[in-house]
């Protein structure tokens, strides 16, 4: 077993620990809320004996560690408790709503990666020229625009003033959702070869994904630019040029690849920002994802649903971070080959 494998095993082990810790934190937050969860679940007019029965069923009469044990036991067997909003098991809600959010965040991540490299490389290549300045001004504005503000402005502009792109929901009225394989409409519709649904689903995705992507995109573009301009003056690049390598190889392989490392390293944080902002953006675009579900749960103090949503997001975030580490290890030979870092 080489150094890299051991490193990832250690990461995985820590991640499990972190998730357990997170579940404790969430559990405590959900239980210190003033008010009786059983009373909140049944409403103010429910008879007392019904509340007492539900308290017994939810193990609320036991002490906190015992309650936590029952909750974790439920989570491990896929039973996350009942949601107050949808009146069914939260596990089913998550199965239904998660794919829409994954589709949205995935497309935003694609936007971030594509355009940050494009803008960053353009700005670095034309350093201190007008393109560089233009991209810098765009970056300042883009980073200062919260996703929800962009989303609202998109809604105003494309919803009322220039309605060329649909702004609400996942599909237009009259179209039916494709059969569920992955739950991602764009992929499912391609699998059954329904191009009309695919095109419509993609158009619906565009604006929310863009609203999520703009901030991280420009932040990444600035990182790509500054690490590229830093690396431009390195000796190894001068020697690559001196060997007479074509410009494209020098730029694409010798300059861009190592310059990607700092950008990829913060990608985990950007995904986190996008997942957080999805909570507002999904509400604005009426996107039926887990974030909108979570937002409703929060506003109704639906504790089971809130805990479940946070644990799911924690899990996704931990996985994303491990993925990011893998990509960095692939890009950085010092890590990949197990040399000293």
């Amino acid at each position: 077993m080489n150094k890299l494998h051991r490193y990832f095993l250690k990461r995985l082990f820590y991640s499990i620990f972190v998730l357990i810790g997170l579940s404790i934190v969430i559990f405590v937050i959900a239980r210190v809320v003033p008010g009786d969860p059983a009373r909140m679940a049944l409403g103010p007019r429910a008879p007392q004996f019904a509340v007492d029965a539900l308290r017994e069923e939810m193990h609320l009469n036991n002490n906190l560690p015992t309650q936590y044990f029952y909750w974790v036991k439920g989570v491990a067997t896929g039973d996350l408790g009942k949601s107050l909003v949808t009146k069914r098991n939260v596990t089913e809600d998550i199965k239904e709503f998660l794919p829409a959010t994954l589709e949205l965040v995935a497309l935003s991540a694609v936007f971030v990666i594509m355009f940050s490299i494009l803008f960053g490389a353009l700005a670095a290549r034309h350093k201190d020229k007008w393109i560089d300045s233009l991209i810098r001004v765009m970056a300042y504005t883009g980073v200062a625009m919260p996703s929800f503000v962009l989303a609202v402005l998109f809604l105003l502009f494309f919803g009322y003033i220039w309605p060329v792109i649909p702004v609400l929901g996942r599909l237009s009225a009259g179209l039916y959702a494709p059969p569920t394989f992955t739950g991602l409409y764009t992929i499912d519709s391609l699998l059954v070869g329904d191009l009309e649904v695919f095109w419509d689903a993609l158009k619906h995705l565009l604006l929310p994904a863009l609203a999520l992507a703009v901030g991280p995109l420009f932040q990444e573009a600035r990182i790509v630019r500054s690490s590229m301009t830093d690396n431009m003056t390195k000796d190894y690049l001068a020697s690559a040029v001196a060997f007479g390598m074509p410009d494209r190889v020098v730029m694409g392989k010798y300059l861009l690849k190592p310059s990607m490392i700092p950008a990829v390293s913060v990608m985990g944080l950007d995904i986190a920002a996008m997942m957080g902002n999805a909570f507002l953006v999904e509400v604005i675009f009426n996107w039926p994802g887990i974030s909108r579900f979570g937002m409703e749960a929060m506003l109704h103090k639906d504790l089971n649903a809130i805990s479940a949503v946070i644990v799911v997001f924690g899990l996704i975030f931990v996985l994303v971070n491990i993925l990011v580490d893998l990509i960095v290890a692939y890009l950085d030979p010092r890590i990949r080959l197990g040399g000293g870092v």
Binding site: G21, V25, A273, G276, F279, K301, V309
Partner: peptide, 22 residues
Amino acid sequence: MRITDIFLSVPPLLLALAIAAV
């Protein structure tokens, strides 16, 4: 540091929303 890791393992806005909501 492990407690720090736990807090950094959730998207920041999400945790803030959850705490503010309860």
